[in-house]
Structures are given as structure tokens and as C-alpha cells.
Design a protein around this nucleic acid. Structure first.
Length: 277
DNA sequence: GTGCCAATAT
DNA sequence: AATATTGGCA
């Protein structure tokens, strides 16, 4: 309790502070993903590393949250408990969509329902609703495609289907493969046992999307405020009459160099380049 | 409860 | 424009 000691550790602490670059990828350990979700915190440094590296051992359990103004009251009912937590909008990057498509392909059209898709994808922060919504639109897209596949080619991927067009549509999607609800390829033969869980990009609510400082690396994959959900190993998909493989999350996306055309003056923080084809 | 789909909201 | 949410129904 001596002041000298305190100022002492503080100085040390201060000196040993990592550079911003180093800080980026790991800073999230300060706030557990669970808390982030629970309080709908939009931490600009949320990250889904589930590496238990105790680089920094902080005790956030001080239970000293200012739950009074958790950005919720802004809507209207100010007295409502921060229960009605609102997640930021999910941004379906081409990579994320690809994962979605892969999941659907591997599940087989039959079993490709929001829940299972979500589980297979095992993307932190991804909810069933997210998938359901996306799936709905994706189905419309597929239907639309078959509709004019042989036609004059008018109205083809006008511009509304940018995302969907970014990933090839597996042939199985058109003529439901019978007798085989699942393709052979293991979903994720990822080499390393990395915990490189894919995280979800989220639409920025405001300020954070302008942070281009810090000399952030052009390919810095980790410098965005995206949600982090507890790195729970999702339960294995319950088979409903069909054999299921073991879920092995972790998935290393091949980089998809596309035009990061942010022509979309949107304030969307994307984890990956906005695949534009 | 889950899924599907259209409509609607943000 | 892209997602989310909702309502009605299976």
C-alpha cells in the first residue's frame, strides 16, 4: 500500500507496455469474450483468440461495471435494463460466405438448416438468426440463378449478388444429391491446430472505423471491432439419421485478394477485404 | 422449439 | 444495399 511501491510497479508496467502493433492481436484477453457478449460491448479490439496465453493476467472480475449506460438507452426506453442487447450487424465477407457455402455443401441440402450450418461453421459470434437470414437470401439467389441459367443472361448477378457471386455455387446445390447427405471432403483439414477461429466482422457503430492510425499493416487481419463469443467448442451436431463427422473447427481461409473497394462509403468494419468481383 | 418464407424494419 | 426482425404457418 505504500505509495512508493505503487508508483514503482506502475512505472515498470508503463515501460513494459507493448507497442500498439503487438497489442492489437492479444489485447482482448483483458475482457473475456463472454463479457463482451453479455454486455454487448463493442470493443474495438475484440478478438477471438482462445489461446490461453496468460500474457497479461488481469482481473476483470472486479465486478465494477458501469451498467448504467451501456449504450442502450440511446434508443428510447432508458430505464430498461440492458437486457435487450443488440448485436451489431453482421458483415458477410466473402470469406465468411464461403465458409457458409462450404458448410451447406458438406452438410448436404437436406441437413443444411440454420442451426446445423451455424454449428458447422463454428464462427464465433455467429448466431442462428444470422445464418437463417443469410440462408434465406441465398436460397432466393439460387432459385433466381436456375431460373435464368439458360436464358438471355439478363439480370444476372446485377450487383445485388456481389457477395453470393463471390463464391462458386457447388453443383450439388441445384440437383439435390440423393443418397448422400454429405460430401466426402472433410470440412477442415487444417494443418495446424491453431485456434485461429474465424471471427465475425461487424458493422461499426461509429468512431471505430476511422482508426487507420497505428501504422496498421495493410493485411492486418486483426484490428477491428468484431464480436467475440465464448470460444465454446460447439456441441457436435446431432445426427438425425445420418452419420456425422466430428467437428473440427478452425479453418484457414485462403486469402481472397479482391478489390477492397470501400466504395461502399459504409462504416462497416470488415475483417477481410470486401471481396469484390 | 425449429425451420421456412414473405414482408417489413433499420 | 445489406441485414435483422417479425408474423404466420408447417
Amino acid at each position: 500500500m505504500r505509495e512508493e511501491e505503487e508508483s514503482n510497479w506502475f512505472s515498470k508496467w508503463e515501460e513494459q507496455l507493448p507497442s500498439p502493433d503487438e497489442l492489437m492481436p492479444l489485447s482482448q484477453s483483458l475482457i473475456t469474450p463472454h463479457l463482451v457478449l453479455a454486455f454487448d460491448l463493442q470493443s474495438p479490439f475484440s478478438q477471438t483468440l482462445k489461446t490461453p496465453s496468460p500474457v497479461v493476467a488481469v482481473h476483470p472480475d472486479s465486478g465494477d461495471f458501469d451498467s448504467s449506460e451501456l449504450g442502450n438507452g440511446g434508443g428510447g426506453s432508458g430505464d430498461e435494463p440492458a437486457r435487450t442487447l443488440k448485436r451489431p450487424r453482421l458483415v458477410w465477407t466473402p470469406q465468411l460466405h464461403k465458409r457458409f457455402v462450404d458448410a451447406v455443401a458438406h452438410l448436404g441440402i437436406k441437413n443444411a438448416v440454420p442451426k446445423t450450418i451455424m454449428q458447422l461453421m463454428s464462427v464465433d459470434g455467429l448466431t442462428r438468426e444470422n445464418v437463417a437470414s443469410h440462408l434465406q437470401k441465398y436460397r432466393l439467389y439460387l432459385k433466381r440463378m436456375q431460373g435464368n441459367s439458360g436464358g438471355g443472361g439478363s439480370g444476372l448477378d446485377s450487383a445485388t449478388d456481389h457477395l453470393f457471386a463471390s463464391s462458386p455455387v457447388p453443383a450439388q446445390f441445384f440437383h439435390p444429391v440423393r443418397g448422400n447427405s454429405e460430401q466426402f471432403s472433410p470440412f477442415v483439414p487444417v494443418a495446424a491446430l491453431q485456434q485461429q477461429q474465424m471471427a465475425v466482422a461487424v458493422a461499426g457503430h461509429s468512431q471505430y472505423r476511422q482508426m487507420g492510425h497505428f501504422g496498421s499493416p495493410p493485411n492486418g487481419q486483426f484490428e477491428n471491432p468484431f464480436l467475440a463469443r465464448q470460444a465454446h467448442q460447439q456441441q457436435q451436431v446431432h445426427r438425425m439419421g445420418t452419420p456425422v463427422h466430428k467437428l473440427v473447427p478452425s479453418y484457414v481461409e485462403d486469402l481472397n485478394p479482391s478489390t477492397p473497394t470501400s466504395a461502399n462509403g459504409r462504416k462497416a468494419l470488415t475483417l477481410f477485404p470486401t471481396g469484390d468481383n
